[in-house]
């Protein structure tokens, strides 16, 4: 760095602006770790683990951008820092839309059997091909029925 002689000319041996890279990796890792954290109820009911990773990534990216724009003669990263931050912001917007909007689009199920009503009887094949009727499940002390979205 030679401010006196350089006169605004950028020194090509500027320092690696690590917070931009680490911040970007942490944020991307946060997005991809959602599937992992979704296995556990404590991080599935509310995706705080992913949000924390996004938050840490965002802080590092901002620190990196401040370095790149505040002291460009010392740190790299004006262009790729901006690109990484934009990508992270778009990914976060996508994630927030999925988590706070799409996942909440659940049908009303207004006609679902309510407490005190009779459960409609049925008979369906289980994983071994054996027909199982609701009545078979009710003795001796009732059954918990778990409707789920399936695996694909």
């Amino acid at each position: 760095m030679d401010l006196a002689n350089g006169g605004g000319k950028i020194d090509m041996k500027r320092k690696w602006n690590w917070p931009i890279w680490i911040g970007f990796i942490v944020a991307i890792g946060g997005l991809f770790s959602y599937e992992f954290f979704a296995q556990f109820p404590v991080t599935r009911d509310f995706p705080w683990a992913t949000l924390v990773l996004f938050g840490v990534g965002a802080v590092l990216l901002i620190v990196g951008l401040f370095r790149a724009f505040g002291r460009p003669q010392l740190y790299r990263g004006k262009i790729f820092g901006s690109i990484f931050t934009l990508i992270t912001a778009l990914l976060f917007a996508f994630f927030a839309y999925e988590i706070f909007y799409v996942l909440r689009q659940v049908p009303l199920s207004a006609q679902a059997p309510r407490v005190g009503q009779r459960a409609p009887s049925f008979s369906l094949p289980d994983q071994n091909g054996k027909e199982v009727a609701l009545n078979d499940l009710l003795s001796p002390n009732g059954a918990v029925l778990i409707f789920y979205r399936g695996h694909w």
Binding site: V106, G116, Q117, S121, L138, A143, Y148
Partner: peptide, 19 residues
């Protein structure tokens, strides 16, 4: 199916619903 859970007692009456 949407996620939903029911507890049905031995008489076939719904005792608990989670929607």
């Amino acid at each position: 199916a949407r996620p939903a859970e029911f507890y049905v007692d031995r008489a076939g009456t719904v005792k608990w619903v989670k929607l």
